[in-house]
Design a protein around this nucleic acid. Structure first.
Length: 920
RNA sequence: GCCCGGGUGGUGAAAUCGGUAGACACGCGGGACUUAAAAUCCCGUGGCCAGGAAUGGCUGUACGGGUUCGAUUCCCGUCCCGGGCACCA
């Protein structure tokens, strides 16, 4: 009986669908397990073999957990709003909704062929109004809240208003923008607009002026992780800095919690490090310097992590965008300062990057007084100081900071070394080590002692205080685009106002063209009557990460119209136990989603403070592209082994024309008209191609479509082969030539049931050898799956099946458990064999066989033996022996006696399971 | 520049609380079956050396040191590759 995988796979996929095999419901009698894939953006190109890697791994784990008796939630959906569909719409006039639906259908078709065990009844699409209702809802919740630092959580903004009525804002400790201090009386006197402006500074979703990454090519702002080296990730257009009024989320208020809660997560250290880096906690002090422009004197606050170096301050620097610039520029310096500001504003991010090490700056004309030494130092303005970090102003210590050093050298400012014996004639001494000098009361201390001592002194004298800064910025939440969630915000009298949660969803309006308007407004401004109760509605839309921030919650209760997720559903499913996806979301989606979850947690809508307990980043599958070598100015191609003798050009060739690095010469001639008359210089009678590991891409003709692999080998082979390729988290090239090995294995397994002499599965009791082969596999599979070491599990299957084949095993008691073990990896063939063994129920409901230690305990172990200090040989003894038994065996062993050459054994020391020491 | 990973056959890779390095698979070589091919099955396969052969010896996990009876594994230094951050005071 042949292994007809296409028929088998179709049959079981239909069976699972019609029996709703993978549909789940809350079931308090069973433990829950939630396995989630990062949902895909459905692009027009469809899936290539790299995309399903993580999905296959999560599917194997889900099926494995089901076998163990868990109630497994394993859903899938689509991150359906986004730029490519809109760019396509601009080019073709086709509505993004249509393109998106088409792409989703294609993705679904491709995924279905691989035999995933998703509960499709829970599918979500972020562009569906029933879904984005809850994205908008969460936004309004954030709009309606402020962050209370006292209680360290989000609170309703009404409470804050009531408090302003009673006591003003002096006692309020909130994460907020810059606000003046006011009393209750003053608050009552403010007009409506003024009050709204003040409240806006406190809201968690707020509107604020900020410098953004503006991408003229796309006509929108972009988040930091949507920009790479000054170009947009999508489309590759240049990006520049621009000040704009934007909706933002106060993610920075959660910085400390986002950082400390990382501890308990089962994420890789590298990923945690990336997040820690992104959050960028740094401990230091804020210090006040008196600054004067000759007319007026102010208190200017700066932030430093090196309070110990105050004695070495020789100048101060302001960011060009700092509010101090205006106050501290003296009339005689005005012209020079303005010229500098104009220059720096003109520069794009890209240009600033290109001149990274070029030092620029301008003197403001003002001076500051060092609070510890009383000395007078100049105040400069320079691009290397960032407005968005700390206070936008620094004290410069050129002797011990390389950036200050470069600046001092360029503008010829003094450099005062503060550490004994350090040489600052060529470069600064940045290390935090050594003994302090030239530093008054700090002299003689080590740097590590001096830092806290300096801060203590500063605090005691009222010059400053300890302070922790974060580089995590608030998330910019507006996009000047069409294909995203509309903001449920309108502007009566110019005041941003919620349209009311009861009116959600606010649906995306139809427009005739997807471009910005002639006067530069976002596309939504084209919509007819885009107003609410006569007031204009917000015209920007939400960014891509809005819809993906809480989708894992929606899967728990996807059809609920009254809540994002009901309390019961949330309390049952809680959070994601295993999350699998690419590392490209390490700082964008994963920070935003954690923030979003924490906000909902503060408000009591969800019961877990972290969304994703365990996270695995699957590696990328790269392409393996092939080359031919054309001799320059000819139409002759030379085989890779001979190319060094010629001057050649490397040309990518379609990998479907290449088999095992050998070129299909006729196919190549037919491939492109220009190669019709191609000549070849062969080696050993064939044309061999060169190859390289590159990104899998159309332009390098290295894309492998999973559908084709399924046609030729079947889904089970695809699934096992992708796992067999190498460790899950590692990037590795796809190479179709190894797939035969896995396919052969499945055929062998099939044959083991049917082709072995006669067709008969017997109820005979299995032999010890058969049981041992099975139980070794059970042991290995359980251990490996828990460690996500799927590649070695596949090897273990091959070994076990090889052993059983050698034993001509056809015992039901062995074959049944074998099918169960295989079912997470190759579910179709496992189901088919299971049913052919006489079972009516799908294998999904079978229990997972427990590891029976009795059969593997017989495994022998190797004991290295040493005597009188030297190791000489190894002896082989059963693992199950106690140390006393080992000793007896050693004393009785003939080989040992021979090695010892007649020496009498005085003592035998056994390190359990490891080593034997013989004292003679 | 800073922070993480990682360097093992022709290839993808196994093996790390230190214990026979290269499991499993691809590829390659040889053989069986076949008129032939495909498919299938069997044997061999890190390198070097000796032998007619079974076999034996040496060497070998990027490089150089160290700890240890014993190091792919632990420590120090160097080189290379991949990823992340990048004027964050």
């Amino acid at each position: 009986m042949a292994y007809n995988f296409n028929e088998i796979e179709k049959k079981w996929q239909a069976y699972w669908a019609s029996h709703h095999t993978f549909q789940v419901d809350s079931d308090p009698s069973k433990p829950k397990y939630y396995v989630l894939d990062m949902f895909p953006y459905p692009s027009g190109a469809g899936l290539h073999v790299g995309h399903p890697l993580g999905y296959i791994a999560s599917d194997i784990y889900s099926r494995y957990k089901r076998l163990q008796g868990f109630n497994v939630l394993h859903p899938m959906g689509y991150d359906a709003f986004g730029l490519p569909a809109e760019q396509y719409a601009i080019q073709t006039g086709k509505h993004p909704a249509g393109t998106t639906a088409t792409n989703i259908a294609r993705y679904r078709g491709q995924m279905d062929r691989i035999g995933f065990s998703y509960d499709w009844s829970r599918e979500v699409r972020t562009c569906d109004p029933k879904y984005y209702k809850w994205t908008q809802w969460a936004f309004l919740e954030m709009f309606g809240c402020w962050y209370d630092r006292e209680r360290d959580c989000a609170r309703p903004i009404d409470e804050l208003e009531a408090r302003f009525e009673k006591e003003g804002n002096a006692t309020v400790n909130a994460a907020c923008g810059t606000v003046e201090t006011f009393t209750a009386e003053q608050w009552k006197g403010f007009d409506k607009k003024h009050k709204a402006d003040i409240l806006m500074q406190y809201r968690i979703a707020y509107q604020g002026e900020t410098t953004v990454n503006w991408c003229p090519g796309l006509g929108t702002v972009l988040a930091n992780d949507e920009v790479k080296e000054g170009f947009s990730v999508r489309g590759g257009f240049p990006v520049e800095q621009k000040k704009m009024l934007q909706w933002q989320l106060r993610v920075s208020a959660y910085a400390e919690r986002l950082l400390s809660d990382l501890e308990d997560l089962e994420w890789s250290d590298s990923l945690k490090d990336m997040q820690r880096n992104w959050i960028g906690r740094s401990q230091g002090a804020e210090m006040v310097f008196k600054v004067s422009n000759g007319v007026e004197t102010y208190d200017m606050t700066i932030f430093t992590t090196r309070a110990d170096t105050v004695f070495g301050v020789t100048f101060m620097v302001l960011a060009p965008e700092s509010q101090w610039v205006e106050k501290l520029t003296t009339p005689d310096r005005k012209e020079a300062v303005e010229a500098y500001l104009k220059e720096s504003r003109k520069k794009t991010e890209r240009e600033r990057m290109a001149e990274t090490r070029k030092v620029t700056g301008v003197f403001s004309g003002s001076y500051a007084i060092n609070p510890l030494t009383g000395s007078k130092v100049p105040v400069w303005i320079a691009e290397y100081v960032l407005a968005g970090y700390g206070t936008g102003a620094i004290m410069a210590v050129p002797a011990h900071d390389s950036r200050d050093y470069a600046f001092a050298k360029t503008f010829d400012l003094p450099i005062i070394p503060l550490i004994e014996g350090c040489d600052v004639s060529q470069e600064s001494f940045d290390a935090k080590e050594g003994i302090m000098c030239n530093s008054g009361f700090l002299n003689g201390m080590t740097v590590k002692e001096a830092i806290p001592a300096a801060i203590d002194y500063v605090e005691a004298h009222g010059i400053g205080h300890r302070k922790i800064n974060y580089r995590l910025r608030d998330a910019i939440f507006s996009r000047q685009r069409y294909w995203g969630e509309p903001f449920p915000i309108c502007y009566p009298d110019g005041i941003a106002t919620s349209i009311g949660e009861e009116n959600l969803p606010l649906e995306l309006p139809e427009i005739d063209k997807f471009l910005p308007t002639e006067n530069g407004e976002p596309p939504l401004a084209r919509a007819k009557d885009w107003t609410w109760d006569g007031a204009p509605l917000e015209t920007s839309t939400m960014p891509g990460f809005a819809g993906s921030s809480a989708y894992y919650l929606r899967y728990m209760d996807p059809h609920n119209d009254n809540a994002l997720v009901s309390r019961e559903a949330n309390e049952y499913w809680r959070n994601v136990d295993l999350y699998i996806g690419g590392t490209e979301h390490a700082t964008g989606h994963l920070i935003c989603s954690r923030f979003w979850n924490k906000f909902l947690y503060d408000r009591g809508y969800v019961c877990e403070k972290e969304p994703f307990r365990k996270l695995i980043n699957q590696g990328m599958i790269q392409g393996r592209s092939s080359f031919v070598y054309r001799i320059k100015n000819t139409n002759t191609f030379v085989s890779v082994g001979l190319k060094d003798g010629y001057d050649t050009t490397e040309i990518h060739v379609d990998i479907s024309l290449v088999d095992n690095d050998r070129l299909d010469v006729e196919g190549f001639r037919a491939w492109r008209p220009e190669f019709k008359d191609a000549e070849f210089i062969l080696e050993d009678g064939e044309y061999r191609c060169g190859w390289a590991v590159e990104k899998m891409s159309k332009s390098m003709f290295s894309v492998v479509n999973p559908d084709q692999v399924c046609d030729r080998y079947g889904a089970d082979t695809l699934r096992m082969y992708e796992m067999f390729l190498g460790p899950l988290e590692q990037s590795k090239p796809w190479d179709t030539k190894g797939i035969d090995g896995v396919h052969r294995f499945l055929r062998k397994l099939w044959g083991l049931h049917f082709d072995r002499d006669t067709f008969c599965v017997s109820d005979e009791a299995p032999t010890a050898a058969e049981l041992k082969a099975l139980h070794k596999l059970i042991h290995k599979e359980q251990e490996d799956i828990e460690n996500f070491s799927f590649n070695t599990t596949v090897s273990a299957f091959m070994i076990a099946v090889g052993e059983l084949a050698d034993l001509h095993c056809n015992k039901r008691a062995i074959l049944e458990p074998l099918d169960i073990l295989l079912s997470p990896f190759a579910p179709h063939i496992a189901e088919e064999l299971w049913s052919l063994l006489g079972h009516k129920e799908s294998i999904t409901f079978a229990h997972f066989p427990e590891y029976n230690a009795a059969y593997t305990a017989e495994d022998n172990v190797k004991y290295p033996v040493q005597f009188n200090g030297k190791m000489r040989f190894v002896i082989d003894l059963p693992k199950s022996m106690t140390p006393a038994e080992v000793e007896a065996a050693v004393r009785a062993d003939e080989n040992t006696a021979r090695y010892l050459q007649g020496a009498a054994i005085r003592r035998v020391i056994v390190v359990p399971g490891k080593i034997i020491n013989i004292v003679c």
